[in-house]
Nucleic acid binder design. Sequence first.
DNA 1: GGGGGCTATGGGGGG
DNA 2: CATAGCCCCC
Length: 753
Amino acid sequence: MKEVGKSYLNELNDVQRQAALCIDGPVMVIAGPGSGKTRVLTYRIAHMIHSGINPGQILSLTFTNKAAREMKDRIEKVVGTKAHRVWAGTFHSIFAKILRVEAHRLGYPNDFTIYDTDDTKSVLAEIIKHLNLDKKVYAPGLVRARISAAKSNLITPKAYASNDELMAYDRMNRRPMIHVIYEKYVAKCKRAGAMDFDDLLLQMFRLLYQNPDNTREKYQNQFKYLLVDEFQDTNYLQYEILKLLTVYPGSQQNICIVGDDAQSIYSFRGATIENILHFETDFPDLKTFKLEQNYRSTQFIVDAANEVINHNKKQIHKKIWTDKSDGNKIKVIKTMTETEEGKRVADTIIEQKNRFNLSNRDIAILYRTNGQSRVFEEQLRKYNIPYRVYGGLSFYSRKEIKDLIAYLRLTVNDKDDEALKRIINYPRRGIGDTTLDQLSSIANDNELSMWEVLNSVSLNGRNKKSLGDFVNLIRAFKQKAATSDAYEIASYIYRNSGIEKLLKEDKSPEGEGRIENVISLLDGIQEFVQEDEVVDGEPLSTDRSLSAYLQSISLMTDADEKETDPDYVTLMSVHAAKGLEFKSVFVVGLEENLFPSYQSLMESNSVDEERRLFYVAITRAEEYLCLTYANSRYQYGQTRFNDPSRFLEEISEHNLDTLITISKKPSFAEPKILGNFKPLNSRKPAISINPADFVASNPTDIKPGMEVIHLKFGQGKVLTVDERLVATIMFDGLSDAPEKRIMLQFAKLQIVE
DNA sequence: GGGGGCTATGGGGGG
DNA sequence: CATAGCCCCC
């Protein structure tokens, strides 16, 4: 598309155009789902650049790297390669980039390590152990959450200890030592030259607030124009950083925030909608725009979404509407088990592909928890439908990848104790737990890194050689790293650390998969080194060091990886789907205790957040929306029976397609046997099998020839019972393998009178 | 110090 | 059900 002048502005509606053109002073855009928010942001930036603003002065913060990359691509289509000069990225990645230049002013090395959640928990576990605290009471995950919340609210360890509310809360939960752990954790990270995810924000804040060498003015001048996407998901700390960058004498306050309170789904990591309210008072000259027209979805979907979200009381008033009047009603599928749910979804995908000529890439399956992906994967595989699972175990969290990366990390930053602990005995070199404990104790007591201990203290007999070999190995790597690019050193380490040899010993398919993964990691490093893009006559990046590479991947998630063949069905969590859209969307597992989640039902108010999450889920759909739930679900080693999700009832019937009740044999689903079938929109949620009504018969009473009901398999006839009380039963409802062997002592059978 | 097998425990979303 | 952690034995 060749653009002359500013004709791109014709592609915006009135409100969108006003929001895009209003580039001076504070602006707030409240943008409903599918309202063209990204389009506004894109054209706004394009317009800025067209108006002569230096792209390098524009800072555009998003929540995923993917969103940032998309935006850059779209800006590039309008303004050309100058788009690359825009600072666009996530809060974490942009700040990490800045801190790589500035960290030394705060007492960190510029090539600091970024600790992921696992590293953090491992550091905490060590501190908890060292303090002789019970690790069951001080569960690292819990402690991490407390510390993370403190950092996100700018509460230092000292402030934490003198904060009555926090201390009282910890005492009440019998964890009065959290503030001590917090203090030690901060010190230990600093000693290790490491920042956790929260530190990337916190240290950026310190850099601006404490202002060493006038860094505050430097970045205030650097970033004259700020844009923040998904503002409802920012936390207190992020907001304070934004204020430091924009609120100062003489500032033009060119900051544009875009958000939707109805799509706030990250309060668990400290996001607060309060920020929107504060924004209005902190920037009194604010101009507000509301984008209310939904261009994405058809009428039934928009209506349903409005119905659902209106159950939340606290909201910024807006009315989302669409002019796409025709469309398909929302399909609801109920199944007996989660396996059947997977099968029905796969069937429906085949049907949609044939009837509506959809490609795989038009289709997404969205779930509340990553663990739900498995059944859908199995069924899609059966039908040979290509799919891609996002989230869950990311490439970089695979063991073999983490192992090699740990070598790279230690080579770059020898103070990185977490990396050292991971590889000091991998591959095995006879350094066991005892030695490791001693090392870490000495390190803790003397406030040294383990590497420093290894290099200074003379260790006793038995391990002397293996420890010495390890030190020499890492020294050799460090020496090589000084003169090599990231790829050369990484492949050198792969070959010489013993990892290659170890992996090649394993001839199993899994083992070969691990080698492939490591090879593709090395390929990725090579790609990084060979990056040759030139913008405005300058190379995009010049730093090909290992350190630069590690930083580039540490904030990457699975969802950010490049597509090779783009025609896949997408499987992802609802959280990960935010900002995306698909022609056809399946939202699965709509059951109480799953969506809304069990945890959310325990805490007051958090059902509202689950509802917003559901709102996000259904508004991803353009034309076809299908909601599914299963009557029973195998969870945590047992069959659970959950009511249909309350959210289903919040959609009125005229937006829904006929409820499909699925069962191979109708008799299985007949109310007269199992009872309690009710239409979906009745006041009380439908409970197809109420476990409370089910009375298990005494195992010894069950004899061959009897008709029995099984909670999961339905009705069947007992064929035999053996001496160990194992019955063979022929179930009416099971077509594949109707004969099941049931252990009567677990009493899931009721005799039919 | 290493490895196998058993038990207890947890169990959400992500940068 | 998965995994971490523990115990026990080599």
